[in-house]
């Protein structure tokens, strides 16, 4: 449903996004993850037909975003980062206006349907300006859902919502994502982890990783790290562990534990345990350290700076 190839956008001399390539299938929720200024919003603005790319092409719902921009815009629902609302309009009128601009049939019923989906049906006669931030966010979401778009592009959809609403909105997105394509940006990693089928990690205008959250974890764990804790001195323990063949990067921890790693696929934990016990230690703990998406993210986005 979304196919991006070689997408590049320059703002003057600054390159905001550089040669992006990715696709999103129908019925897939894709998370767009990256630090501020990575190019998430720029990419979304190109996909929604707000601005043309400097180079490359993007096909959304079967239409080119530059050549057939109007066709794309008919089929895309978009929630921008700063939810744009007319504060002096009544909620219902605002949604009706947006619906009319998109030629939604039976617009009154569809507005009520959208309001019902985001749980704002009882506020439909109030002014947009009087709503709380979370409610405004939900009006923005209703606006994006109004025309039952094939592709939904959401820039930070749960920002500013209270925890209860976050759960509701995620549930809603999950529901929509079953049939339609959802591309959402977020910098909440747990959101990406529990909402998205696939994650694109973008940094400095480039995609640095693209996979399911599980695969990303596995792939980055080229090595598995384990922490060992015994009764006794960590320094001595470290030398004992070092003597096991295949163990790398042995580090003593401040709290008396020892961390080491080995190439993934070849589990050295039994050997290490045997060695530790043979050397006369009381083994208290032998625990693999999983890498959270958070760490993966930091790893990937910091790498660039280190090089």
């Amino acid at each position: 449903m979304i196919k991006v190839s070689g997408l590049t956008k320059d703002y003057g001399s600054r390159r905001a996004i550089n040669n992006l390539n990715f696709d999103c299938q129908q019925g897939e929720i894709v998370g767009f993850l990256g630090p501020n200024g990575a190019g998430k919003t720029t990419t979304m603005r190109i996909l929604t037909g707000y601005m043309p790319p400097s180079d490359g092409e993007a096909i959304v719902a079967g239409y080119d975003v530059v050549e057939e921009s109007l066709e794309v815009r008919k089929r895309v629902g978009y929630l921008p980062e700063t939810v744009p609302l007319y504060h002096d309009m009544i909620v219902f009128d605002y949604l009706k206006y947006m619906g009319e601009l998109r030629h939604v049939p039976d617009v009154d019923e569809r507005v009520e349907e959208a309001l019902d989906m985001v749980g704002l049906i009882n506020r439909s006669n109030g002014y947009v300006g009087n709503l709380s931030k979370g409610m405004k966010q939900r009006v923005g979401l209703a606006q994006a859902l109004l025309h039952r778009p094939e592709v939904l592009i959401l820039d930070e959809p749960t920002i500013g919502l209270d925890p209860g609403q976050v759960v509701e909105v995620r549930e809603l997105i999950r529901e929509i994502g079953r049939e339609r394509t959802v591309l959402l940006s977020t910098h909440l990693l747990n959101e990406a982890q529990n909402l998205c089928d696939r994650v694109l990690i973008i940094n400095k205008g480039k995609i640095v990783a693209e996979d399911t959250t599980e695969n990303l974890q596995a792939r980055l764990l080229g090595a598995e790290r384990v922490v060992v804790r015994v009764r006794g001195e960590a320094d001595e323990l470290a030398s004992s562990i070092k003597s096991v063949k295949g163990v790398r990067k042995v580090e003593t921890l401040d709290d008396g534990g020892v961390e080491f790693e080995f190439a993934s696929g070849k589990d050295l934990r039994p050997e290490v345990a045997r060695q530790v016990i043979k050397d006369g230690y009381d083994l208290l703990e032998l625990r693999p350290l999983g890498m959270s998406l958070e760490e993966i993210f930091l790893e990937l986005t910091n790498n660039e700076g280190k090089k």
Binding site: G49, Y50, R73, P80, T82, P84, L85, Y86, L101, H103
Partner: peptide, 14 residues
Amino acid sequence: RMGTLELLLTSPVR
């Protein structure tokens, strides 16, 4: 200024 232009420019309106 309000950002609502983004909404109009991503609507199917020339």
